[in-house]
Design a protein around this nucleic acid. Sequence first.
DNA 1: GCCAACGTTGGC
DNA 2: GCCAACGTTGGC
Length: 153
Amino acid sequence: MNYWLFKSEPDAFSLDDLKAMKGKKDHWDGIRNYQARNLMRDDMVKGDLGFFYHSSCKVPGIVGVVEVVKEAYPDHTAWDPEGKYYDPKSSPDNPRWVMVDVKFRQKFSEVISLQKLRTVAKLDGMVLLQKGSRLSIQPVGKTHWDTIIKLSA
DNA sequence: GCCAACGTTGGC
DNA sequence: GCCAACGTTGGC
């Protein structure tokens, strides 16, 4: 059982958007960073849980929890020349990018803001809080996970 | 909108 | 394989 953090701009795709999807699930497409891809492809398994993080918005922070319900498979949005995630170097024969499916699990009663997270000593070392960190899929340690879940209660 | 930090690209 | 130039991310 692994824990993760999924970053998304709520203007593009929010936790509420996920909740509103059929089956409350969707594919996590558009990842175009090798480190993030490798985490999804190599380490993410069905049943893993992840925080849903809202970035580039008024109050950046963790808004809820999602579950990985399908493991990595080719990201077909890379093959659409009209799409904004098009990558000519990816093809069905040789897919360069992958995605997973995630399902809505929980929305916190209030956002646990980045500002708040920075004040919690137990979260020292969390990838999200490291300077210059902009990885869009991040691993979260169990201790950090539990600490944040407690904060949400 | 600014800008620091980071990843990627491509010439050499 | 180095590294300068460029594009992107994301908090503020």
